[in-house]
Design a protein around this nucleic acid. Sequence first.
DNA 1: GAGTGGTCTAGACCACTGT
DNA 2: CAGTGGTCTAGACCACTCC
Lengths: 270, 270
Amino acid sequence: MTFRDRRPRYLQLAEELRERIERGELLPGSAMPSETELAESSGLSRASVRNAIRQLREWGLVRAEQGRGTYVRAPRQRIRRRNTERYQWEKDRVLLDEAERRRTGGTEHDTGLRVDDLRFHAEYSQVEADQEMAAAFKLPVGTLLLRRVYWTSSRHESAPLSLSYSYLPYDYVKANRQLLSADHEPWPGGTQYQLFTVGIELDRIEEVVRARPPLPDEAELLDIEPGVAVLDVRKTSYDTTDRVVEVADIVFPGDRTELCFTTRLQRWNR
Amino acid sequence: MTFRDRRPRYLQLAEELRERIERGELLPGSAMPSETELAESSGLSRASVRNAIRQLREWGLVRAEQGRGTYVRAPRQRIRRRNTERYQWEKDRVLLDEAERRRTGGTEHDTGLRVDDLRFHAEYSQVEADQEMAAAFKLPVGTLLLRRVYWTSSRHESAPLSLSYSYLPYDYVKANRQLLSADHEPWPGGTQYQLFTVGIELDRIEEVVRARPPLPDEAELLDIEPGVAVLDVRKTSYDTTDRVVEVADIVFPGDRTELCFTTRLQRWNR
DNA sequence: GAGTGGTCTAGACCACTGT
DNA sequence: CAGTGGTCTAGACCACTCC
């Protein structure tokens, strides 16, 4: 007398396939049996098989490609981005000489990848602050902003590691004309160095982390399956006079990213 | 001659319903038309209607309840948890007297809710460290750990604001017998005060933030729709002798939570 | 052209909720 | 009990990829 499984059959199939993947019976990169094959072998209809596969996609275990097949994904190796340390490290680097700064950038710091392994993309434009940006900067609606879109990807994986939308008040940076176009990207030393050239020193960075479903174009750019969330970081930088000098939205694929923060506590003085 | 919409019809329906929700035509809390009604009014099959509704659920706009109906969700008001400030605030409170500590706890600090509005649940047990926990504590596998499960919820919403699984090495805390059972929860002053009673002072807290699909029981407890991710924070606390003294996994509903971190930067001394 | 996943239909039965 | 959402079937056509 065996136990009668009460779970829906598509879920049973999904978990059976999950176990086969975890046991290494289905290897990363290899094709899954096609939907018709699975329907035949499991005795289910194709609709139920598709239901099972949708579950596997939400779990991040497989990826489906229209017209080609469904493939087992490599176990998601997450990239750990150490935000707290990163920002102080960036600030310390600002005062180093250029050759030193040029040697490594922030992404290498996170990923351990070499400069040669990374592809970098930057795009500059000018926009007027909408209500949201105006509120973030505590400046009037319509204030001219420099908008910069970045993405960085590894040469080995086509999908970017992150998308970044950065905004700077145009007035704060216009003193250095080199900051106004993408021609000088990537800047050795990053944004904190760029701000340094116009006399701005950062005091603190506030980050608000959320998880949300990707927008359609983010899903495509970051190459994530439907149902997989993105991590969305709203980063607000304050200078030493307490002005908001940069607001950035950074979007990470939720299944491949870890964000790391360290809080140092003051000693009790007893 | 009108433009022929090439998007699948279930997506068109989903976006049409999304607009009706955003326009306020379908009010939060109110019932959506039933699936059969939508099928009739849209001329689609029920399967396609269900596809559209699945999309709305992933967007977090509606919730489906078996046997009752599908309801428009209130726009998710996110609870912002200010981790960086919270931990220093908790530490400062440790040295205050009990009456003062009892007045407010960490969750009130985050949410602005009053103590009376919150329900608190704690559960203690003892476990042996598995491989993962042993690595996190840098202690041998099998080391005895005190395991504490917490959740806090608002009286107005049944679903908890977070689930927390906290681990402490038994040896570190056994000197204070009151720490070994849930009878004294909630402790005025929180974990840092509990550790203080056995002579432990924290030096820093490291937090690793990820987004991932919920486990089946997490989905139920946190009351989130399938396809909505959770934010998962692995919190590691170090004491002033650089021992790992607490490891906690805190799970938040991804659609209702914002985590806030502040990085203060040291001044350039030039 | 053969095979894949994506969309869609028109049914059916079930488990669950209200009354 | 009727009505809801959840599961499931047996088909069909489409867009896409690869040969």
